[in-house]
Amino acid sequence: MNNYIRKFYYGDIPEDKAGASIVSSTAKSDWPLWEVFIRSKQGLDHKHVGSLHATDAQMAIENARDVYTRRMEGVSIWVVESKYIHATNPDEAESLYEPATDKIYRHPTFYNLPDEVNHM
């Protein structure tokens, strides 16, 4: 697709007007990427909040504490190296989730009951 965006975004300076040469890098970051999950309070699930780089799990937790819980956002932190997360592919969405869409009888609202039957 030959549709190059020339719109200037906030803080977005187009390269051709920026006056600097393009330097490409093939260097790889040494520290692995970690996904961070935070439990915001007792009784709630851990929820994905973001990611960061760290040398090991302990450093990942320490950094997550500094980055994601500066305002008492959490009482518990999980970290997992991103490479260990397995995910479904968007291409499979149809075969995976479509079969559920026509089973409306799985929802309570499918059943019409007389008004006298309260709170069921």
Binding site: Y10, G11, D12, I13, E15, A18, G19, A20, S21, I22, V23, S24, S25, A27, K28, S29, L33, G50, S51, L52, H53
Partner: peptide
């Protein structure tokens, strides 16, 4: 981190800043 999800490494983005290729708010 958000930027990395698009398939560019942290180091590449930082190198682009240092080389002057990438800009920051003036």
């Amino acid at each position: 981190s958000a930027c990395e999800t698009l398939g560019i490494t942290r180091e590449e983005t930082i190198n682009d800043l240092h080389s002057g290729k990438a800009k920051y708010s003036s």
